[in-house]
Write a protein that binds this DNA or RNA. Sequence first.
DNA 1: AACCTTGTTGGACAGTCGTACAACAAGTGA
DNA 2: TCACTTGTTGTACGACTGTCCAACAAGGTT
Lengths: 204, 204
Amino acid sequence: MSTAPAYRRSEPDARRLSLIEACARVLARAGIAGASVRTIAVEAGVSPGLVGHYFAGVDALIAATYAHTGARVDAALETAVAAAGDDPRARLEAFVTASFAAPIADPELLATWIAFWSLVRARPEIAALHDQQYGGFRAQLEALLADAGVARAELRPRAIELTALVDGLWLELCLSPQAFSADEAAAIARAALGRITSPDRSAG
Amino acid sequence: MSTAPAYRRSEPDARRLSLIEACARVLARAGIAGASVRTIAVEAGVSPGLVGHYFAGVDALIAATYAHTGARVDAALETAVAAAGDDPRARLEAFVTASFAAPIADPELLATWIAFWSLVRARPEIAALHDQQYGGFRAQLEALLADAGVARAELRPRAIELTALVDGLWLELCLSPQAFSADEAAAIARAALGRITSPDRSAG
DNA sequence: AACCTTGTTGGACAGTCGTACAACAAGTGA
DNA sequence: TCACTTGTTGTACGACTGTCCAACAAGGTT
């Protein structure tokens, strides 16, 4: 008589990914305080010891989760920009608007992102990932703004502004969901974008 | 022969405050992960057991620290607005600019604030404090914007936008101090404010 | 069918966590 | 000087943490 297998082997990459996704879910649900090796292992349906087999430690798993989540966001933004066609203004608007639509506006992803922020100060490797991620955001925004005809001297401050605005809206959307909706946030960001890209006729 | 006292008694309020301030310093330095009863007690120069004497638990101490920090920020903003005189535009600008000057631009306070954000999702009592704090920010901004002549229908979205922008700049100023300076952030916020309060002549 | 690699398990280990509490002592009033 | 209140200490407790590792077994090879 044959018994059912006690466990199933997975492709190493698939198992690695499932641990990363479990880590993201735990971070979203319970924050950084709840992200222990055991909690994550249970979430992934796996023995605690397996985490050590795929990652040097729990810190490395969390860092990998940040990198994976960041790449997911980058891909979603890139897709949205590409789908907007060739018009520079439309591409810029698509970049900003996509931040408030699926899959980026997902509350679970937002909460995970905030958990990463809380680690930046204490963990140098997370700080490095953060710098890289946000440097990328600003660089891409600068390029899109340049294509849309924004003056060269304005590129840097406007890119910083838009990144900060989107982040701030994102943050409050996650922390106080009843304060305003994702649609309202998107409309606010688009309005700010309109004011930035329209030639300033009230100078002086 | 008399020996030196083993400890000094403090006024209950003073001791309570010193624990709150120690908690804020620990949160800024080590994040939420490092904010244990023992760490905070050492920071305050006090025995671990004393925390339980003044607060129901470590969660209550952290919540009290959030309330205290929020009140500190409110007071600083109120002072800045009052010092700006009677001109509505100047008062509005003072509110926004004060966020990037002492004592609010303090990296320690920023880091503490981020630690609170990371707790909002998991701790209902922290979420309630957050809603109250940010509801207050937006309400005050709406009042200042109204005084400055912003159209009634625009008050809500513009207040949300300014709050988000300031928060986003604040956040990045803390997480990537080398990306831009506090002065640059203040200039960016003022420029956005100018675009918001100036009559829009490019409509249509 | 015997074998080998290695993904996977489950528990041991030292350390830290939050909480509770008995004992001590500082300061006050009598 | 004595008693009394209570701020303060230090520690014990069980539950949890991250890391480590010997043992097991799944899946492929020979």
